[in-house]
Structure formats: structure tokens, C-alpha cells
């Protein structure tokens, strides 16, 4: 059989999916990036190679996420796409007719407005992390609640407490106050979900026309409390797609499938890329007062890519990798 691979290398997690010939999601792997994207991609490739059926030919590879260029070079990607296009592609194909995508990950959050299957508008969080998953992570740690149990517990709440959601620091002092007043844990957890939803809608969703069907994806969509808080705030049913936590990777794989269907051969380097010796180093260029931090990636000792310079002195001096 033939299939496609999608890589989503984010700051928190690295997701890899395998799609079959029809574009269905067959396998997925979820790993922590741990700030080291190269080993994460290699480990992920190794794990997925054990999951794909024997004698599978990989016809295309797509990479997305903030580490997409790095991942694309390591694996040999046919398409290197930004997260927004990838997420929108996946949800518009898996949930036909979708008009709004709410995506909340560990470090960022975005809203994508689709009309007739194409992106009409989008926004990402700008100045603050209060509207992201790390907000819940931090407060959960303070309350000694496992993040996995967070949603379930919060659903037991009968009257969520009001917590200021504008800023994670304000929220924390607000929450401590409510704790000391003797409020119940589920009520506090439900209050936190509502605070996050308020912040998200006022910040990322500001001025956007949120109409249904609404899809909620990204790691935070695992939290049932968040889903119900969104449903209460928007007064709309919220759809959580089956592969909600790997939608970026799914979208990238779909885009790779589209790309090679025009007859292009794949640039995939094979699962052997997991064993190749990739090394990244960085240095500060002292050519001008910008002191750019240049990153240099080498494969088995040979420099294959550089980036991070404003003027192109370093990045243009290695053969360019074509980006689809």
C-alpha cells in the first residue's frame, strides 16, 4: 500500500501521523518535544515506522508547527506549511461544513474562520499566554490536580466561581482567594475553564464572527470542562474531531498528498533518517550590530541548512531547500 506522513513539531509536543491512500488517519504518535526537536522527530519517525503496515511506500511527507523547517529538512518533506493552513485543511476535510475552528495548544491558541471550505480569517494569541493550555497546566499544578483529571472533576461543579482570566498572575491570586474562602475544588476548576474561555474569546476571538459548526481541537480539547465552558459561552454545540490532538500533522499530511498527486516525486529520506546523525549548533554572527543568532544544521558532518540571519549572508550560502 501507499501512504503519507504528517509531522507537527510544536514547542510542547511533536505529533506524527500516518495516512493511508484514501487520506484516512491510520496511526498517530504523540511525543513531548522537550526543547529538542531533532531527537523528537527522529524518535517519532522510528515509532511510526513500526506502526505502518509492512511493504508500505511513503508517497509524501508534510511538516508543520514552529519546528517545521527543521523537521522538513530532517525527514525530507514535500510540503512545509504553517500551522494555520494545516489545521484549517484538516478540520475542513474531517468536519465538512465547519465554519469556526477553535484551536488551543500548550503555548499558543488560534481561531480560524472558514467559509465554504476555505480560510476567510484567522488570529493567533499575541502578547500573553493566559489564553493557552499552559494557563490550565500551571493552575492545575498549584491545586495538585493531574491535568488528565481536570476536565472530569470540573464537570462535577454546580456553580463555577468567577476567576479573573485576563492575566495568569491575576488569575492565580484570585484563585487563591477563592480557595481560602472555602469554595469547592470542582467549582474552582470550572471557574478556571470559564476564565480561559473568556480570555480566549476576548483576545484571540475578538471581532470574529463565530458561527457553527464549531470545531474545538488542539491538546486542550481533551479537557471536557473546556468543551462545556465553550458551549455555555457560545451557546452552540462544539464538535471535537476524533484526532483533535494531532490535527496539524493530519493537515500537513493531507497537503503533502495533494502536492504529490500532481505527479511530483517525494523528497522523503526514508525511515533511515531516524538513524542519521543530525547536529544543530548555533553561533552569534558579528558581521553587524544585529548579532543574529544563526542556527546551522549538519547531516553526517556536512552543513545542510542555516537560518536565523537577517541579511541572508549565512542562509543563502548553502543550497536552498525547496518549500512547497
Amino acid at each position: 500500500m501507499i501512504g503519507f506522513i504528517g509531522l507537527d513539531v510544536g514547542s510542547v509536543s511533536t505529533n506524527i501521523v500516518f495516512l493511508d491512500d484514501e487520506g484516512r488517519v491510520r496511526e498517530s504518535v504523540y511525543l513531548r518535544t522537550n526543547g529538542r526537536p531533532i531527537p523528537a522527530v527522529q524518535k517519532g519517525l522510528k515509532q511510526i515506522s513500526r506502526l505502518v503496515p509492512p511493504r508500505t511506500v511513503i508517497r509524501g511527507v508534510g511538516a508543520t508547527g514552529s519546528g517545521r523547517h527543521l523537521a522538513g529538512i530532517i525527514a525530507g518533506a514535500d510540503v512545509i506549511k504553517n500551522e494555520i493552513t494545516s489545521h484549517a485543511t484538516a478540520s475542513s476535510r474531517l468536519v465538512p461544513g465547519v465554519r469556526t475552528v477553535l484551536e488551543i495548544g500548550g503555548q499558543d491558541s488560534k481561531i480560524i474562520i472558514l467559509r465554504d471550505g476555505i480560510v476567510a480569517d484567522f488570529a493567533m494569541n499575541t502578547v500573553c499566554a493566559a489564553g493557552t493550555g499552559s494557563f490550565l497546566d500551571q493552575q492545575a499544578a498549584r491545586l495538585n490536580v493531574q491535568i488528565e483529571d481536570f476536565g472530569e472533576l470540573s464537570l462535577k461543579s454546580s456553580s463555577p466561581v468567577r476567576i479573573a482570566g485576563r492575566c495568569a498572575v491575576f488569575a492565580e491570586s484570585d484563585m487563591i482567594h477563592k480557595q481560602q474562602m472555602g469554595h469547592d475544588l470542582p467549582d474552582i476548576l470550572a471557574g478556571l475553564c470559564e476564565a480561559l474561555v473568556r480570555n480566549y474569546l476576548n483576545n484571540v476571538g475578538k471581532g470574529k464572527d463565530i458561527s457553527g459548526p464549531v470545531v474545538f481541537q488542539g491538546g486542550v480539547a481533551a479537557n471536557l470542562g473546556m468543551r462545556s465552558a465553550f458551549e455555555r459561552a457560545l451557546k452552540k454545540e462544539i464538535v471535537i474531531p476524533p484526532n483533535y490532538d494531532v490535527m496539524g500533522a493530519v493537515g500537513a499530511a493531507m497537503l503533502a498528498r495533494d502536492y504529490v498527486s500532481r505527479g511530483a516525486p517525494t523528497a522523503f529520506k526514508g525511515f533511515g533518517a531516524a538513524e542519521t546523525d543530525f547536529r544543530a549548533r548555533s553561533f552569534e554572527c558579528d558581521g553587524c550590530p544585529n548579532f543574529c543568532e544563526v542556527v546551522e544544521l549538519s547531516e553526517s558532518g556536512a552543513v545542510i541548512a542555516r537560518w536565523g540571519d537577517r541579511c541572508g549572508k549565512w542562509s543563502n550560502s548553502v543550497p536552498q531547500i525547496a518549500c512547497g
Binding site: S66, K81, N82, E83, I84, T85, I118, D121, F122, M124
Partner: peptide
């Protein structure tokens, strides 16, 4: 920044 620009151009 690049993510936003690329996504906008795609749009």
C-alpha cells in the same frame, strides 16, 4: 510572525 504571514498569503 512568519506563520501569520504565510497563513495570510495562503488565505
Amino acid at each position: 510572525y512568519m506563520t501569520r504571514l504565510e497563513a495570510f498569503v495562503d488565505l
